[in-house]
Amino acid sequence: MIRSGNPALKESTFLDLGTGAVVSRNAGAMTLNGTVNRTGILLLLCVLTATYTWNTALTPTGELAPGALLYILGGAIGGFILAMVTIFKKTWAPVTAPLYALAEGLFLGAISAMYEVKFNGIVLQAVLLTFGTLFALLMAYRSGWIKATENFKLGVVAATGGIALIYLATIVLGFFNINIPYIHESGLIGIAFSLFVVVVAALNLVLDFDFIETGVEQNAPKYMEWYAAFGLMVTLVWLYIEFLRLLSKLQSRN
């Protein structure tokens, strides 16, 4: 049984959509190098649009431009729609995954600018922490220090689901001007909550590594390289946003 807290990566993901079985290596199967290359392409596309919105969202005086909110909303909504399309139409991943990366870049560049205006230097810290966490966990996974056992997967998936419910409740209650106390504030409880979310997001990377490795071993279809790269990107975006939230809470106490 393969489990991942990432909704883009679940047990049936690597099955051929037409027959319900994995394809043979001769038919053009997923490889680890191919997945790494596709991930690099998605990251590059994301950085390109993020750089554009970063430069557009910040005025020459270092203030947030009036149109920054449009990039945040447009990128978030566009990214969500493309993510849903990719999840339900996996064979479209070679097209929708790059489009998702471009949309997320618009969102990330603008929201990063918003945080940077309030907390100088926070974006560089969040970027370094995100990729530092990625490479540290990848090394730990490859060396066998961290193993995606069945209990480990169950725990991470359960924690991820709980966080998703809390965020959903926050959004719904926000429509009625009701705020969940403490966890979104800069107090000790809020910092502890953000730290917990960062840890859970990071542990999802381990599940993603395990899932991708399993897909390669099972000779998943070639287009799944794009889909697996998309799934990994979803986790990285989440991790980066959570680092921004955690760092903003910490800096608010200074």
Rank of each mutant, 00 (worst) to 15 (best):
224 M>I: 02
87 I>K: 08
101 A>Q: 04
247 L>K: 04
155 G>P: 01
98 P>I: 08
3 R>E: 13
182 Y>W: 10
134 L>Y: 15
46 C>Q: 13
63 E>Y: 10
148 A>R: 04
4 S>T: 12
122 I>C: 07
208 D>W: 02
173 L>P: 04
60 P>Q: 06
41 I>K: 07
141 Y>S: 04
41 I>F: 09
118 K>L: 11
135 F>D: 12
78 G>N: 05
251 Q>G: 07
208 D>C: 09
151 N>Q: 14
35 T>W: 06
85 V>W: 01
115 Y>C: 05
188 L>Y: 11
137 L>A: 06
135 F>L: 15
97 A>H: 00
66 P>T: 10
185 E>L: 07
242 E>G: 03
43 L>T: 15
28 G>S: 03
254 N>Y: 14
98 P>A: 06
159 A>R: 04
200 V>W: 00
191 I>M: 10
84 M>I: 15
87 I>G: 00
132 G>T: 09
181 P>C: 03
35 T>V: 09
196 F>L: 14
72 I>C: 01
83 A>G: 15
57 A>F: 02
149 T>V: 12
7 P>S: 09
176 F>L: 10
104 E>S: 08
176 F>E: 11
55 N>K: 10
83 A>H: 11
178 I>R: 14
148 A>K: 05
121 G>T: 07
158 A>I: 12
16 D>Q: 04
113 A>E: 05
66 P>A: 11
215 G>H: 02
6 N>V: 05
176 F>Y: 15
151 N>W: 12
107 F>Q: 00
190 G>L: 05
170 T>S: 14
152 F>E: 08
66 P>L: 13
47 V>G: 06
67 G>W: 13
111 I>H: 02
155 G>Y: 00
244 L>W: 03
125 Q>C: 12
63 E>F: 11
110 A>Y: 01
97 A>L: 02
222 K>N: 10
199 V>I: 14
99 L>I: 13
231 G>F: 01
49 T>H: 02
242 E>Y: 02
163 I>T: 07
37 N>V: 15
15 L>N: 04
61 T>W: 12
175 F>L: 12
144 G>L: 13
63 E>P: 03
45 L>K: 02
128 L>K: 13
207 L>K: 03
24 S>I: 05
56 T>I: 11
227 Y>R: 03
124 L>I: 14
193 F>M: 09
125 Q>L: 13
18 G>K: 14
191 I>G: 02
155 G>W: 05
59 T>V: 10
237 V>T: 06
135 F>M: 15
128 L>F: 14
230 F>T: 02
167 Y>T: 14
157 V>Q: 09
235 T>Q: 08
19 T>M: 10
83 A>Q: 04
55 N>M: 12
217 E>P: 02
121 G>Y: 12
78 G>D: 09
55 N>I: 07
3 R>I: 07
38 R>Q: 12
243 F>N: 00
111 I>E: 01
191 I>W: 06
201 A>K: 01
191 I>A: 11
54 W>I: 00
175 F>W: 03
182 Y>E: 12
159 A>M: 14
174 G>R: 05
24 S>H: 07
66 P>Y: 11
169 A>S: 14
252 S>Y: 08
238 W>T: 08
59 T>Y: 04
174 G>F: 06
138 L>C: 10
93 A>R: 01
59 T>R: 06
12 S>E: 15
51 T>N: 15
33 N>H: 09
157 V>H: 06
154 L>S: 14
89 K>N: 15
94 P>E: 08
250 L>S: 08
250 L>Q: 08
141 Y>V: 08
23 V>S: 03
131 F>C: 08
97 A>T: 06
138 L>K: 04
